[in-house]
Simulated scan of single mutants.
Amino acid sequence: MPERRGRSPVMHDVARLAGVSHQTVSRVLNAHRGIRPETEARVRAAIAELGYRRNTSARALVTHSSRLVGVLTTVPDHPDTARALVGIERALRAAGRTLLFAGTAPEELAASAERLFGHALEGCVALVPGQEGELAAVKGPPPTVVVDAPPAHAALTVRADQRGGAYALTRHLLDLGHRTVHHVAGTAPGHAARTEGWRQALREAGAPEPEAVAGAETGTETESGTGAGSGPGTGHTAGLVLAARRAAGEEVTAVLAADDHIALGLLHAFTESGLRVPGQVSVAGFGDRPEAAHLCPALTTASADPAEVGEAAVRLLLAEPEEREGAGANPEQDRAVTALLLPVRLRVRRSTGPPPARRPR
């Protein structure tokens, strides 16, 4: 057995003995997906040989915690919040922690955060829409992971790859044979990154870049967790605009909506205008809302699983500082900021297909 030299083993000792990086040891300890069985076996053997244990007692002394982890949200009724809570609770239960939940209105966020932080928390996961004023209210202590926050506003954040998801959806439509893809932009947090992904895919393909229909100009309704210009009414108004452009001779055969709610309004408008989806125009959304698979036609969309986002937030929160670089997929390092960028998966359904000229007769 390697010489201990009078001190307890640390993660770097395990990594050295197993012949892996300390990030790999972290991923094994955090039950991260994608670790090769033989690698995990070597790490587990090294842990057993060295007698390595995570220093959770020291953490508790430093943070004065009671093994409580708070979850704070301004969108308690949003479907994604419920799905994220499943992942958060599952990860906390596996880590021997207890969840303390606080759902509040945006205008009461600061007061709710102060009450929640008064419970000697080990840390907190914040599910807020990402507006600057709200993010300022949830900066700890205690350590706080903010879901979908811009890195500049939170030291720890877990984000879905909004830009990459929109890029992949646009590529999907171009690969079907559409000469270009129109876009209905939204105003909710993350929508700007989706617009950037759409533009990037068009430019890389050398495709025409049509003017986006701005959500803020076509609707004003506000939905829980979205914002003005980000609901079905927005999509309906934008769809009528695009249908009119098509009737005037513009080539409109594929549309990417900033989210599934906007896509729902697009489907309504195109049907109302006598356009078949996907026979004459393809429609894709973003978010994979529970109803997306049950629309007619079923909606092609993309999302990061909210439960996986919740689990990743807990892994990041509970990781030791030296572990955080390996706590999740695709870590982005920016000074003191640790941001985990989670992949977005496409859900290809019946609302997208080849353009009319490419369809088999």
Rank of each mutant, 00 (worst) to 15 (best):
A15R: 05
E211Q: 15
G70T: 03
R90F: 05
G328N: 10
G34D: 04
R289D: 14
H182A: 12
L295D: 00
P354F: 04
W198T: 05
A269F: 12
V10S: 02
M1C: 07
S273A: 15
E38K: 10
S57N: 08
L68H: 13
A18D: 04
P106R: 11
V71W: 06
E322R: 08
Q23W: 08
A155L: 14
A166P: 02
A327Q: 02
E322L: 09
T39I: 14
L316I: 01
S351N: 01
V69E: 00
G265S: 12
V309I: 15
P143F: 11
A82M: 08
R44W: 12
T222D: 15
D305H: 11
R163E: 15
V281Q: 10
P321V: 11
R335E: 13
S303C: 15
I262S: 08
A120F: 09
R194D: 00
V252F: 05
P290Q: 03
R345W: 07
P208Y: 05
S303A: 15
L169K: 09
A205L: 07
S273H: 11
D259A: 06
G140Y: 06
H294C: 02
T271I: 08
G227E: 14
M11A: 13
V62A: 15
A244F: 06
A336E: 15
R345C: 08
T218H: 15
A319D: 00
R115H: 13
E38A: 14
L50Q: 03
G186L: 05
H268C: 12
V138L: 01
A292L: 11
R315A: 02
L99I: 08
V181D: 04
Q162W: 05
A258F: 04
G190L: 09
G206E: 04
A105I: 02
G186N: 02
T222L: 14
H64L: 12
A216C: 02
G130A: 01
L240W: 05
P297R: 10
I35Y: 10
R245Q: 15
T104K: 12
G219F: 13
F286D: 00
G233M: 13
T180Q: 13
Q23D: 03
F117N: 10
R347D: 00
Q131K: 06
E325Q: 09
T81S: 05
H236P: 05
S351G: 01
A102C: 14
A48C: 05
S351Q: 02
T352V: 12
G279K: 05
A238Y: 08
P210G: 10
R350E: 15
G206M: 07
L29W: 03
D305M: 13
R347P: 00
L17W: 11
D77G: 01
V158T: 02
R36F: 07
R315D: 00
H153Q: 10
L85G: 00
G249N: 06
L72Q: 01
E204Q: 11
V125Q: 06
P354D: 01
T234F: 11
G118K: 09
G353N: 02
A302K: 09
E49K: 13
S21N: 09
